[in-house]
Amino acid sequence: MNSLRKEFTTLSITLIAVGIALNLALGTVVLRLGLPLYLDSIGTVLVGALVGPWAGAATGFLSNLVWTLTGLFPQAFAWAGVAAIIGALAGVFARSGWFNTVGKAALAGIITGVLSAILSAPIATYVFGGVVGAGTDALVAAFRAAGLDALLSNVAQGTFSDPLDKLVTFVVVWSLLLALPAREKARFGNLPVSAGRPLAGKTRRPAGKAAKKTAKKAAKKSTRRR
């Protein structure tokens, strides 16, 4: 439980609130761009990557609770568990260095997407009668027409859209981590220090002379970047 407590400081709790608000607000951008994606978990994945699996899970779960409480999308709470798992996975992937390169981040996104498709399907099937009340229901109908049963059609629909959605989400978060100053990333302490950067210190909390050197290097780099 120690890791649990470590992940819920005042700072990270504030970040969780911001992550939830981002999840909700980014819908506007997706709508304006007219992309066929949900991108409703960028905030969740970002918090998971920065703070850790517990915080990521909390962001996902509470995002869906907030969707329900705003009354804009009251059915969201049914998927709160899936959202929590997405956040937890993002934390675990980030901790083990999967956000270091774009390829690994994309792969992590695909794995998360497949898992979320498999976990969401029973909810859509047994709670909502096999539909989600959106355009993707046409896909479900197509799979049913092709002869799949109710649960399998929902799994198939999910694996059609979720991995791509999570791939884009993870790659967006990867590039944001690249742009975020090292100081901000170190503040939350989940990422290995080198995450998203080609070069930097190797230990998570470097100490002593070596640390000062790497810190200097990092500082130089970020000034050069600008």
Binding site: T10, I13, T14, A21, L26, L39, L50, V168, A179
Partner: peptide, 25 residues
């Protein structure tokens, strides 16, 4: 093309709000 626009659209919002977090805390 529109998918490529995603990052310049969401990047500033997300980065700005994450950097505001410590002030809020």
């Amino acid at each position: 093309n529109r998918a490529r626009l995603l990052l310049p659209m969401v990047g500033p919002l997300i980065l700005g709000s994450v950097m505001d977090v410590s002030e809020r805390a």
